[in-house]
Amino acid sequence: MTVYSLEMPDKGTITYRDNKRYWWLLSIFNPLLGFVGIGLHAATGNEWMLLAPLVFSYTVGPLLDWWWGEDENNPPEEIVPLLEQDRYYRYLTYLAVPFQFIGFLGLAIWLGTQELGLVGYICITVVAGLGSGLGINTGHELGHKSTKLERWLAKIVLAVPAYGHFWIEHNLGHHRDVATPDDPASSRMGENFYRFMVREIPGAYLRAWRLERQRLAREHKPVWHWHNSILQSFAITAVLQLGLIAVFGWIMVPFLLGHNVLAWLQLTSANYVEHYGLLREKLDNGRYETTKPWHSWNSNHKFTNLMLFHLERHSDHHANPARRYQSLRHFEDLPRLPNGYYGMFLVAYIPWLWFKIMDPALLQLKHIDGDLSKVNIDPKRRDEIVARYGNGKRPVQASA
């Protein structure tokens, strides 16, 4: 086990051991879970076995998060530079890229070479789509880094689910507008997952193209240029997915369409739970306050954090977006989710249950304390929410 040690003149020797160092391997093997379903299907002939990875993620995952509990450990700040310089952690994110392709292609080839009925076809499409949603998470981690290699790896891995616009939109749009009414990727109090979905997916896509057009214009280039980062990723998507159609025929078309949409919905699920109802204060100069840790819902649940490159320590990520996953911190008095992401996704898909759990939790946050003027509210449900929870303060106006 690697021990990081640093001599400080005023503090003596500071040491730190990352007890999760090798547990992070779960994040790179996560995209390969589809092979478990393939193996069980091959062994039993039962097409329902192809759903095993989905069952594991959405039943065993939340149970392990509940049983294993939360990790509030932080690396000492003095050690963080050493931790971030350790290339082992970086290599794991690099490896996750080819593993994402292997996991996706394994499922696509199994579909193309086996005599599957409708049940098997649907099962393998669902598992492939949800598995490729993990590629967006890998692209998220890589896309925030400043090296050319990591930026290119982000474009490459985002090509698997045809979501090449994500890192542009996320870095330059979502991180700028997060927890404000202007952000299509921040969910509002009273907005259910399905209404958020139809606002977030097209809104993020259009914002990405607007941002990339502006970037290229500053370089005196047209939007339809080979320097367009979105088009670069989409070109890889075209080679990958049209290649599968060329090899296996039209049977791939519904599979690929379903796979892409389900992968996008994985990201949308994460965006929905990460900022629900949270709001940055608008200053007198018309700008919003700097993003703080309490503008994101956080989760310290061990298992799914290890499966998702610490994505659930989202509060520190938004406050310090360049910080690498192994260094992300826990803070006291943060908005905290009651379970990891997979468990919260399931709750989000049942709107009445989500509202029952999360609306009171939102209003009880220390920095909100029941004040609706500090909440990002769905404009279509504002009157209803004010009637139910109103405290005489005017809630913020959100664009429809």
Rank of each mutant, 00 (worst) to 15 (best):
T2W: 09
T13E: 10
Y16E: 02
R17I: 00
N19A: 14
L25H: 12
I28S: 04
G39T: 12
G39Y: 08
T59K: 08
G61I: 09
E70H: 01
N73G: 10
N74C: 06
P75N: 04
P81A: 07
L83V: 12
L83A: 12
R90E: 13
A96Y: 03
V97G: 06
Q100S: 15
F101I: 08
F104Y: 15
L105N: 04
G106C: 09
I122N: 00
G129Q: 13
L130S: 08
S132R: 09
H144D: 06
H144V: 03
K148W: 01
K148I: 09
E150N: 14
L153T: 05
V157G: 01
I168L: 13
H170R: 04
D177T: 08
V178Y: 05
D183T: 11
M189I: 12
E191F: 09
E191I: 05
Y194D: 07
G203V: 08
L206C: 04
A208F: 07
W209D: 01
W209L: 14
R218D: 12
K221L: 15
L244P: 09
A246V: 00
A246F: 07
A246G: 13
F248E: 07
L257D: 03
G258P: 06
G258W: 02
N260H: 10
V261N: 10
L262I: 07
L267W: 11
E274T: 09
Y276Q: 13
R280P: 08
D284F: 00
T291I: 15
K292W: 07
H295W: 07
S299R: 01
L306V: 09
L306S: 05
M307H: 08
M307G: 03
L308M: 15
F309I: 03
E312M: 13
D316C: 04
H317D: 01
A322I: 13
L328F: 05
F331Y: 14
P335T: 13
N339Y: 02
W352T: 08
F355I: 12
I357A: 07
K366L: 13
D369G: 08
D371R: 14
V375E: 07
P379D: 10
R381V: 05
R381S: 04
R382E: 00
A387K: 15
K393L: 06
P395V: 06
